[in-house]
């Protein structure tokens, strides 16, 4: 129940997360110059999501938090997806003809 487990994340873990964030940043810059067609956007977003997950899980301690906190974070992004998906549903299908 309690959020206050006072979980101390070892410095080593922080440094590891930090290093991977930097590597992913330079990777996404490098990949943006390679022509992957429609996959450019997908890869860029996949890398961004991975980076965000790393920050959320370790820097923001969600990995060590209660189910409620995890539910909160998940719910927040789910609602963002509701906004994106249902709005795009309109734009994508606007010119469909059968």
């Amino acid at each position: 129940m309690s959020d206050t487990t006072h979980h101390v994340v070892p410095v080593r873990v922080y440094l590891l997360v930090f290093a991977s964030l930097l590597v992913l940043t330079y990777l996404t810059v490098a990949i943006s110059y390679v022509d992957l067609g429609v996959f450019n956007a997908l890869v860029a977003m996949a890398i961004a999501v991975t980076k965000a997950m790393a920050v959320i899980l370790w820097f923001m301690h969600v990995k060590y938090s209660t189910r409620l906190t995890k539910l909160c974070v998940g719910g927040g992004f789910l609602w963002l997806m509701f906004l994106f998906a249902l709005t795009m549903m309109d734009y994508i299908s606007r010119n469909w003809k059968f």
Partner: peptide
């Protein structure tokens, strides 16, 4: 985290 998304969306669009 906001910047993590802003950077590729704004700067790296169609770099190739």
């Amino acid at each position: 985290i906001v910047w993590i998304f802003l950077f590729p969306l704004l700067y790296l669009l169609g770099g190739h």
